[in-house]
């Protein structure tokens, strides 16, 4: 099944062309140019990975990351940035980002990370389902 990706960056030209390249590789890609729209989108859609720029207008990428994970702790976020510093990278990973990739991006590396994100998410959802089943088994008499 095609991976579903949300691409968040304020550089419209960058977002458009990366969207086209990922779609050419069979992925379903939605985009957002502002952090605010991300919160609307994650309320209604399920994504295998969110690719998030660290520096955007109005809200710092690390804050956006925190807010996403507060609502959806299972969400797999790949940080994409033009100015990765060791400090910011460590902070992002500590906050729960899957990985950090520096611009300009190697498309094959990005695809690899998206596939890892999908696998991680499936694993988390499987564990969730297993726990629900265990609860059912304990609480139901059969």
């Amino acid at each position: 099944m095609a991976q579903k990706v949300l691409l968040v960056d304020d550089e419209q030209d960058f977002v458009e062309v990366l969207q086209e390249r990922l779609e050419n590789r069979g992925m379903t890609v939605q985009t957002s140019l502002t952090p605010q729209k991300v919160f609307d989108k994650i309320q209604h859609e399920n994504y295998d990975a969110i690719i998030l720029d660290l520096q955007m207008p109005e809200m710092d990428g690390l804050t956006v990351l925190q807010e996403i994970l507060k609502v959806h702790p299972e969400m797999q976020v790949i940080i994409l940035t033009g100015h990765a510093t060791v400090d910011k990278g460590i902070k992002a990973m500590k906050l729960g980002a899957l990985d950090l990739i520096e611009k300009p991006v190697d498309i094959n590396l990005l695809i690899e990370k998206i596939k890892t994100a999908e696998a991680n998410k499936m694993l988390i959802l499987d564990e969730k389902m297993e726990n629900i089943m265990k609860d059912l088994m304990i609480n139901k008499s059969w």
Partner: peptide, 24 residues
């Protein structure tokens, strides 16, 4: 210079993606 290098990285990222798209 950090701010300028950040802006340049964004430009390079767009050029890089367009070159990649041409290859695709």
């Amino acid at each position: 210079t950090a701010s300028i290098s950040h802006d340049l990285k964004n430009v390079l990222a767009i050029i890089n993606e367009n070159a990649g798209l041409l290859q695709d």
